[in-house]
Amino acid sequence: MSGGVEIAVVVAEIEQAARNVKRFRFAAKDGGSLPHFAAGSHVVVLMRDGERTIRNAYSLIDRAEDGSSYRIGVLRTPNSRGGSKFMHERVSVGDELRITMPVNLFPLFHPGRKHLLIAGGIGVTPIYAMADELQRRGALYEIHYAVRDEAHGAFIDEMRARHGDRLKLYRRDLEEILAVDQILPGQPLGTHLYVCGPEGMIEAVLEGGLEAGWPKEHLHAERFQTPPTGEPFALRLAKAGLTCEVRGDQSMLEALEEAGFDPPSLCRGGACGQCAVDVLEADGELIHNDHYLSAAERASGEKIMLCVSRLKGRELVLDL
């Protein structure tokens, strides 16, 4: 399968970690150990929902000391088309799922002098792993974690126990605001910043960093992007001679997979670049939702990312 090597896992534990967040512990089905991973990695979880397979990326929180299990955290998304809802409602302890090998699109910049980790809400999952790794390596780091209220208890308690006062918490219900202009001043030269959370927060932190004169190479972000919905359109593959319909609530990648086609993909979130294809004709406007193509590549109209982008119009012809 295009996502690479897959691993069969069994759900060993489910925990309500916050109001809308469940934490899952996956153990290798064969009882063996799961691969090591570097902090910032995610896996794609494959969920069999009747006829269809839902594939969502989830960041790895940690790997058990003995290698027997991984943990992920899943936010229940309002109006979910399936994935997070499936994880919350349909998955129970003992169930079997498949995951892909870990992939890392949000790596630590190890030569950095110091590391500022900034998380909002569910964005804590990769940040949790990064904090553990920095601690293991004896690096300098701070964690800034914004939550709605104390209902995010499970992550807070564990991180407090591991990282003590390197963790700074911001509770919205207490009107504590995570403001980037208060975090950045006074950080040593060569500090790297990593942010994961809601889109608005990521933008604000990155902008704040640039305004404060930080080089953009020192600012790192991961967006938990989901394929946005839109209008249906027709998709034609010139080489394969295949035509299919992309429904409004479907990505092109999903529609092609449903049609039995298996284009390369990895993150399914517009970040890795694996699913880029050449556009031959577009009867309509290309809606780019990825974080991979450069502005010039977008403007050229020659490439599109199957996993998150779409057409606003009638028909798109791809060089596939």
């Binding site: 691969p35 992939v103 890795c272």
Partner: peptide
């Protein structure tokens, strides 16, 4: 380079 940046464990 683009290919290698996506090189996966086990492959």
């Amino acid at each position: 380079l683009k290919f290698l940046l996506n090189l996966q464990q086990g492959r």
